[in-house]
Structure formats: C-alpha cells, structure tokens
C-alpha cells in the first residue's frame, strides 16, 4: 500500500506492506537508520521515536497507524539541549541506545519541563542502556529539565 508519513517535518511516501512496522519503514524505506532495532519486542526502547509528541516504540506500531500523525526521529533533532547535555555529561558510550534515550528525554522535556525525579525515572525506565551506569544519563536529563531551555530546534 502507498503510505504518506509526516516525518521530521517532511511529507514522505513509501510503498509498504500493511503489516510493516514503523521501525522498519523508517529505516528501510526512508533511510532513517538513527532509529535502532534492539529487541523488536517493546522491551529496550532503542527504536523510540515521537508520534504526535509522545515517545513511541516504533517496533510496536504499524507504519500505517502513524499515517495521520507527526513522527519525529533523532534525525529531526539538531543541536537540541538534550543532545548537547548528552555530549557534555558523557551520557553514552557505544551510542546504540542513545537515539532512543534522546527522543524519550526530548519528549519528556517538552511535555513535563518540570518533571520530578519519579517521573523522569518512570519515563526513562522504558529504555535500556548497557554501557553507562545510567547516572550520566540522569545528569544529562536533569540538566535539561532544570535549565528551562527551549527543547526543540527542528531542522529545516
């Protein structure tokens, strides 16, 4: 089926099977390989994107379910406070879980700029990082939340 997706501010079209997951369409059809498959089972969060501003595991969503929604992937973020904080706080090592963590944190900072520790924990427990101790990620996210910086700068 022909599918039109609003991804990172662009209308993209793809010819896909209705059974195709958003994760695979973003990667295989649209070349957005910043979206990482980690488990394809909803457990690890590496494939997290935002859909209408909410973090979403793209392995749990059919591409067709995203048809009338706004999808944002890591490729759509540029020089955002969350990205900068992740660099400054050494909040990644191998970098594979990083796009998912950043998209989740980015959405959190948008929707709950004053999120307390419990909320941050609740949200970020959706993602697995196997390299860091999580402490660095916590520092990065908390730095953004407390700074009150605008959290988005979309690429044009």
């Amino acid at each position: 089926m022909k599918l039109r997706l609003n991804v990172n501010g662009e209308i993209r079209s793809a010819d896909v099977r209705p059974a195709e997951l958003l994760l695979d369409v973003l990667r295989e059809n649209l070349g957005l390989t910043g979206v990482k498959p980690g488990c394809r089972h909803g457990d690890c969060g590496a494939c997290t994107v935002t859909v209408d501003g909410l973090p979403m595991k793209s392995c749990l969503m059919l591409a067709v379910e995203a048809a009338d929604k706004t999808v944002e992937t890591i490729e759509g973020l540029q020089d955002s406070p969350v990205q900068r904080a992740f660099v400054e706080k050494f909040a990644f090592q191998c970098g594979y879980c990083t796009p998912g963590f950043i998209m989740n944190s980015h959405a959190l900072a948008h929707l709950h700029p004053k999120a307390d520790k419990a909320t941050v924990r609740e949200w970020l427990q959706s993602n697995i990082c196997r390299c860091t101790s999580y402490e660095e990620i916590q520092e990065a996210v908390e730095a953004v939340l407390s700074s009150g910086q605008p959290t988005s700068r979309m690429m044009n």
Binding site: G45, L54, M56, L60, M61, E122, W123
Partner: peptide
C-alpha cells in the same frame, strides 16, 4: 496501569 510494561509502551 502504571505497573504494566513501561511508560513508553503504555503510550501504545
């Protein structure tokens, strides 16, 4: 409900 899966999954 908040005990089920994780927050991002619960968005779905």
């Amino acid at each position: 409900g908040s005990g089920i899966a994780d927050r991002t999954s619960r968005n779905k």
